[in-house]
Design a protein around this nucleic acid. Structure first.
Length: 645
RNA sequence: GCCGGUGUAGCUCAGUUGGCCAGAGCAUCUGAUUUGUAAUCAGAUGGUCGGGGGUUCGAAUCCCUCCACCGGCUCCA
């Protein structure tokens, strides 16, 4: 007998070799019907795999992440089987589960498929699912595996096999499809009740641009038809939050092919919003000891040769600007750091002068590949809320903590709760690609890890993701459709101080090299506004929103009073508009609601006579009658509540 | 940059297999209306059907090419 410990810590005795499915059945028949896979000591197993020793066991259903993953991974196999039957001779790459569904990379040879073919494939998948196919795990030797896929002519699986060790290789057979796979899988396919193929895309084999591009088919499956319906509805809802759609509807920004791809035009309301954000951060930074600087949009090419950026990115950037002077060339600045280094060099520093924090909302231009451009989140001209902190090596950690405070303060102010944090460190296998001394790297990496721990933040550590010049810490937020974007970033840099020969005099009287920290809490104004829009679906916090109130006169007869109210509110620094169209009040309200203006101020006969205002709140409805003073106070209170913490 | 998709008025979309002068709603403008908490009525303006080339008696519709956008891949100093 073995002892199985369940998640609620209860323990049960079972004969050796019991399977997850049998354990489920011993608990309840219902559970046995719904269970998809089993976690055995933290590892996900097939439900049919015998358990031979004492273990902690968790039965995964659709409500568990691992349960979904098992279902989707099995669905990928099923889709592959369907495709192989419909398109014989197809070669298969990899087919994993992902956050929302699964995909399979396939090579169709000379043929191609498009979304028009989805229905036919979906139908076939459902037919196969109904056959209640079982997944059969088979341990095979490397030799056998190679023989099988060589016979099938599938070079991708052969390529994968190269990196696998003999003895650790398993096949899964289901229906007519056999795949190289470590599992786990569903006991059988009958739990897959609804299928939707989502999209088709090109994907390079092994993520390598220089290799062949395969066709990637994305799909998702569900245990109930209703789950699929709900999911599709959710997707529709998410699309309504798309910042590109809201940006157009609320007249925040636009693009023009005549200006150029990826070069946003900020419309008056968008500019107002952005200005409010800038003011907010400038205020925070002033208190945190940052000194504002301003540098030009272009710089002599030699500046970037010195920084090393020209060598690395020159070919793929906007090309140099010629001048009438022979051989003179300028570059649109792709980053602000070299300029800030030159500012540093304008004087001498004692160790007591550090840290020096230079801040600039600096607009930079990068020639991103055309396929990369995406609304405001990825553009070719953007403004970084940039600052560079020049400090002593012993100050890195403290400065890091202070920057983190700013970023966390901003996220809190804007109610960003679902962010993730990533620490990017060196790749220990590949140390020669990094610049800077071993000692400083260690110090900086340690400082970042400790700073994150001190703040009690959960961060993913990614080795090999550091920039060549230093480790970094990134704050990422998801957009409406779950795509992850980097916003705030803090990066340690040993490269530029070296290249620009930056110095300070230490207490020992010798010259030392300062450490440079790049940081941008928003990341860029463009991307931040994009994510902010999707976060609040265009309903910006009152203090940020470009239009805070609108006066709606019942008819032209109340124009005099209405205009008086307008002036009063604007004088009280409430950004207020006036709707003077000869429309009915219902229409004016509807339009103001659509424009997501927080407060509607309705004035008519009664209000004029009493000197009052009828207030309606966006999304909430009629709030009743206020004196102008009471309303101003209401707005001011709401703003101070939102910005005080 | 690569793979796949899309492109009709400012916006959202009709326009079956090529065939009268390309339509609708909203928005805009004009007029009427003077309105009380999510759409007043009437009229008008607005399109080289993304650009260019081709096939055809005839192209929004078929073919080629370029451009832009969308979903991914790769990239992101």
């Amino acid at each position: 007998m073995i002892t199985i410990t369940l998640p609620d810590s209860s323990q049960r005795q079972y004969p050796k070799g019991i399977t997850g499915l049998e354990i489920a059945r011993s608990i309840s028949e219902g559970l046995a019907r719904n269970v998809l896979s089993v976690n055995v000591d933290g590892e996900v197993w097939d439900l049919t795999r015998p358990i031979h020793s004492n273990a902690r066991v968790k039965l995964n259903t659709w409500d568990d992440k691992d349960g979904k993953a098992t279902m989707w991974h099995s669905s990928a196999h099923l889709m592959a089987e369907a495709i192989e039957q419909l398109y014989p001779g197809t070669k298969f790459g990899i087919g994993p589960d992902v956050e929302n569904g699964f995909y399979y990379d396939i090579d169709l040879g000379d043929r191609s498929i498009s979304s028009n073919d989805f229905e036919k494939i979906e139908q076939r998948i459902l037919e196969l699912a109904r056959e209640k196919q079982t997944f059969h795990r088979k341990e095979v030797s490397k030799e056998e595996a190679i023989k099988y896929f060589a016979g099938k002519g599938d070079e991708y699986k052969l390529d994968l096999l190269k990196d696998l060790e003999d003895g650790s290789i398993s096949f899964y057979e289901s229906g007519t499809f056999t795949d190289l796979c470590r599992g786990p899988h569903l006991p059988d396919t009958s739990t897959i009740k609804a299928v939707k193929l989502l999209s088709i895309a090109g994907a390079y084999w092994r993520g390598d641009e220089s290799r062949k591009q395969l066709t990637r088919v994305y799909g998702i499956t569900f245990p109930k038809q209703k789950d699929l319906t709900v999911y599709l509805l959710l997707l529709e809802e998410a699309k309504k939050r798309d910042h590109r759609k809201i940006g157009r509807e609320l007249e925040l920004f636009a693009f023009s092919p005549n200006v150029g791809q990826g070069l946003p035009l900020w419309l008056p309301k968008g500019a107002q919003l952005r200005e409010n954000l800038e003011k907010f951060l400038k205020n925070v930074q002033r208190k945190a000891g940052y000194l504002p600087v301003i540098t030009p949009h272009i710089g002599n090419k030699t500046l970037y040769v010195t920084s090393g950026h020209y060598e690395k990115y020159g070919k793929d950037s906007f090309q140099p600007i010629q001048t009438p002077a022979e051989g003179e060339e300028f570059l649109l600045k792709p980053m602000n750091c070299p300029h800030h280094c030159e500012i540093y060099k304008t004087r001498q520093y004692s160790y007591k002068d550090l840290p020096l924090r230079l801040a600039e909302f600096g607009t930079v231009y990068r020639y991103e590949q055309s396929g990369e451009l995406h609304g405001l989140t990825r553009v070719r001209g953007f403004t970084q809320d940039d600052a560079h902190i020049f400090c002593r090596p012993d100050q890195v950690k403290e400065e890091f903590l202070k920057v983190m405070d700013i970023i966390l303060y901003i996220f809190k102010a804007l109610d960003f709760k679902d962010y993730s944090v990533q620490i990017s460190l060196r790749d220990p296998e590949n140390m020669q690609k990094y610049i800077g001394s071993e000692e400083n790297w260690e110090k900086a990496e340690k400082a970042i890890i400790e700073a994150v721990e001190e703040k009690g933040i959960k961060a993913e550590v990614e080795t090999g993701e550091a920039a060549f010049y230093g480790p970094k810490l990134d704050f990422m937020v998801n957009d409406a459709l779950g795509r992850r974007w980097q916003l705030g970033t803090i990066q340690v840099d040993y490269n530029l101080p070296e290249r620009f020969e930056l110095e300070y005099t230490g207490s020992d009287g010798f010259k030392h090299r300062p450490v440079m920290i790049h940081r941008a809490p928003f990341g860029s104004m463009e991307r931040f506004v994009a994510v902010l829009i999707e976060h609040c679906a265009g309903n910006f916090p009152l203090w940020l929103t470009p239009e805070q109130a609108i006066v709606l006169p019942i008819s032209e007869k109340y124009e005099e009073y209405g205009k008086k109210v307008l002036t009063l509110l604007n004088d009280a620094e409430i950004r207020t508009l006036y709707d003077e169209r000869s429309e009915k009040t219902g229409k004016k309200i509807r339009d103001a609601e659509t424009r997501k203006i927080p407060y509607m101020v309705i004035v008519g006969e009664k209000e004029e006579a009493e000197g009052t205002l009828s207030i309606r709140k966006h999304g909430a409805g009629d709030m009743g009658t206020f004196t102008p003073e009471a309303f101003i106070k209401l707005v001011q209170n709401e703003i101070s509540q939102l910005t005080a913490f």
